[in-house]
Design a protein around this nucleic acid. Structure first.
Lengths: 119, 119
DNA sequence: CAGACATATGAGCAACTATTCAAACAAGAG
DNA sequence: CTCTTGTTTGAATAGTTGCTCATATGTCTG
């Protein structure tokens, strides 16, 4: 019988269930990436931005006007959304139009809404 | 022609697109709740906990052993997961078993994984 | 009852985050 | 070229978060 890990000396561990869960664990890299994705989604400003882009592409100052924020603040958030590959952008002269990157975004927001609505 | 909002004096605003997006905005309460939900999902420890519960119910110290953390740390995170209605619990004597609350959780994690895997 | 054990919780601290402000960059107009 | 406008970026700061440690709660055993 193998010794318990040092951080948890409790004797209540259900060996079999833990072993089974252990086998199905995600690799650290995927866990980090998944958490990072949700973290980006976990801010009201960014949720509002994404929802606004549901309708279609908008430029930075459209979003600023819509959310009642400075374009600087919006731009900072768009950077994170870009890094998470949640939005795409397209330059047209000085104006930069942002749009949703793929349909996973829609799916995630829709599923999230289901959860908070139904409960 | 109505004046622009004070925080955004830019003249590049695309009135029509903004108006259309404005109509479809979510109420503040839903935005907050949705962001709060994703925020809870946006932490590696909590992602690991949820993934572990995919297999079946586990008690606090099972999770602690599995993640190599103290049961105190795990319990703190479980509190947030409970508050977000992502997990349920069942007491059996001194032991408390946690399990996924509903299928939205599975769906969200699965959809998130699709996004980070495909890109 | 006392003692052991599983879990929960509160305070404290280091690390992180969202906004603001100032400044830079990029592109069109004159 | 200069001036203006849309956007980006870096630094500073107030607020938040995840863990640790100590303590409390609840439950079973003797």
């Amino acid at each position: 019988m193998k010794p318990n890990i040092d951080v948890c000396r409790m004797e209540c561990v259900h060996e079999q269930a833990v072993a089974q869960a252990g086998e199905q664990m995600l690799p650290d890299r995927e866990v980090s990436e998944l958490a990072a994705l949700f973290k980006v989604l976990g801010d009201p400003t960014r949720v509002r931005i994404l929802r606004a882009l549901f309708v279609g592409e908008l430029c930075v100052c459209d979003l600023a006007a819509l959310l009642g924020m400075t374009s600087s603040a919006v731009s900072h958030q768009l950077r994170l959304l870009r890094a998470a590959k949640l939005v795409r952008y397209r330059k047209e002269g000085k104006v930069v139009f942002y749009s949703l990157d793929d349909d996973h975004v829609r799916g995630l927001v829709a599923e999230g809404l289901d959860h908070v609505r139904h409960g």
